[in-house]
Write a protein that binds this DNA or RNA. Structure first.
Lengths: 341, 341
DNA sequence: TTGAAAGCGCTAACAA
DNA sequence: TTGTTAGCGCTTTCAA
């Protein structure tokens, strides 16, 4: 019931080899044989057995993506945009995408190792890099192709695409300062994530360049979800001398922070300014709309995917490390400080 | 450099067969041989070549998911929740998940057919069913295992999980009516989607039961995005006699509609009521928070995945068709009609 | 308890 | 231009 090369061979009276060659467009097959084979193949509804091909060819034409989930849910537009970017580009280049979700830790590494050793995929896209990222070490040791979205702390050198978080946060911090804000808080990501480092650094540099003294009580860490942003914003607003602006390190937390402020009847954009980072679709439709830094996640997914496939195919990468400059999108959630003296 | 059974065989002085048996826990291997093999395998860092195993065993332990994207982006929390649910359950049951994205149409069917014929996956999860769903026909004809999230119009019978959209929309419509709303609008999904049918029907039934005459000018179709909700809500609000309540058929459109209302300085929950469907994480943190129907997408993903794997493994399904009742979550975006006479 | 041999479906070197 | 042969790494009869 399942059609194989052998069936076509039998039906056409040719050998399996010839059929294979005809189907693969080799030019050492006579035109008529080729036509015959193609016709019969179509008639029978043949399509090749992927595993057999892959076993033979020793490559899988599949790339892997293990999404680091924190907790059971990962409804983060960040990942879905990225996934779409990777998936569409992969499909376009004739590659499959094998996706799984694994919480950071031992299980995750086991999944990487099994995929590598079992040659389940030809390469990996690594997302949301961490300090001392064990995944990087693991992949490098195995000399396995990968491209990361994000940099890593180790001095080791690997291909990546990243956005310049330091630049972005500096931009938005100075922008807030220029609006007259003096007490600017930051809701930072968990510090083990690489991008937390860069964004926080940008925040601090921005403060410094604006001549605002650093105040560690205004830097809180959130878990990147709306809930996290909501909770941390509440703590900030409970401070004896609360901030007049909050720069959240991603949009989801910014949205949560807005919600916290609005619960206290603060007018966001007027009584308090709140900014995000990512420019997820929701940022445009929140109320007020969110001032944020645009990161073209869909395109980044495509770039990372394309670089990986080039790497797999042994083509040279024109650029091994790509650092994108995020763009500041000013919307309504930020405005002049109302507590100016 | 890549470790195979042969390497272990050589190193232990046993045959490939014995090694294979030892590794697979057959009990016709002496304890010491087994121990030896296991030790050497570990030393060498062996893990089996997936493709060879699959070629031999004739099944892939992989399930497929082709996400129907409309346009290049699919930043829809709907899909990411579902994907996480499917992916985590699959991993837990020892299955891989092959994901791709394809716009509905011919390309999409080709992808299904290639995966079936190439035995790339053991079965499919079908999401967002459509009227006359060609995917269903294709899969049924090939007698290929699949489980759908959503029903289909054809009389043909297949395993699915679905939420009772009719029940849900009726619930929320009657709820809005009970608040005194008489002009209730609906922003419906594209009509070729099955769930559009059920939800719209629920809306109409709710209206009827509340004794409110149907008014087709109050039913608009949106594309399920915030932008779509925003645009359709603007049209509704531009009506000579605009609605006092808008029941959007998903949260994203509801959020867009809220944004449109707020742009006109309408107080959502007071001047106008707006409701959604899905209860995405954002619904809790929008301002005002969104009244909506809860659909446990993460769990649904898990259920669908588990049913599919049972089907693949030839186990009987305890329930072939599961219809879940969505729960009404009342939040702040809905309130008493202010135009009561 | 172990090993030899066959074969899953395909591709590729080599020979004819 | 075509067919023969071998082999990718694994599992699984069947014999020893």
């Amino acid at each position: 019931m399942v059609v194989t090369l052998k069936d076509i061979a039998k039906k056409t009276g040719k050998s399996v080899t010839t059929v294979s060659r005809a189907l693969n467009g080799y030019d050492d097959v006579s035109a008529e044989t080729k036509a015959l084979v193609l016709r019969v193949a179509k008639e029978l509804g043949y399509s090749p057995n992927t595993w057999a091909q892959r076993l033979q060819k020793q490559h899988t034409e599949t790339i892997g993506l293990i999404i680091p989930t924190f907790g059971p849910r990962f409804s983060d537009p960040f990942f879905s945009e990225l996934l779409a970017g990777i998936g569409n580009r992969a499909a376009h280049l004739g590659y499959d995408l094998l996706v799984s979700t694994r919480a950071p830790g031992e299980e995750e590494l086991i999944a990487y190792r099994a995929a590598i050793q079992g040659r389940r995929v030809d390469g990996f896209v690594l997302v949301r890099t961490r300090r001392q990222d064990a995944r990087v070490t693991c992949l490098q040791e195995a000399d396995f192709p990968f491209v990361a979205f994000g940099r890593a702390e180790e001095k080791i050198d690997f291909p990546f695409v990243d956005e310049d978080g330091t630049y972005g946060m500096k931009l938005v911090t100075k922008y807030l300062a220029s609006l007259g804000h003096q007490r600017i808080a930051c809701i930072a990501p968990p510090p083990n994530l690489m991008f937390a480092h860069y964004r926080l650094q940008g925040f601090k540099e921005g403060l410094m360049e604006a001549g605002i003294p650093a105040d560690d009580s205004l830097i809180l860490i959130g878990d990147l979800t709306q809930r996290g942003g909501y909770e941390q914003a509440n703590k900030l607003l409970d401070l004896p001398s609360p901030p007049t602006a909050i720069a959240a390190c991603n949009d989801l937390m910014a949205l949560g922070a807005m919600s916290a402020a609005q619960d206290r009847n603060l007018m966001v954009g007027k009584d308090i300014s709140i900014t995000g980072f990512d420019n997820i679709p929701m940022a445009e439709y929140s109320h007020p709309s969110l001032t944020t830094l645009h990161q073209p996640l869909y395109q980044i997914g495509g770039m990372v995917c394309e670089m990986l496939i080039q790497l797999i195919q042994g083509e040279p990468l024109e650029e091994k490390n790509i650092l994108l400059k995020p763009e500041l999108i000013v919307r309504q959630s930020s405005g002049l400080s109302s507590t100016q003296s």
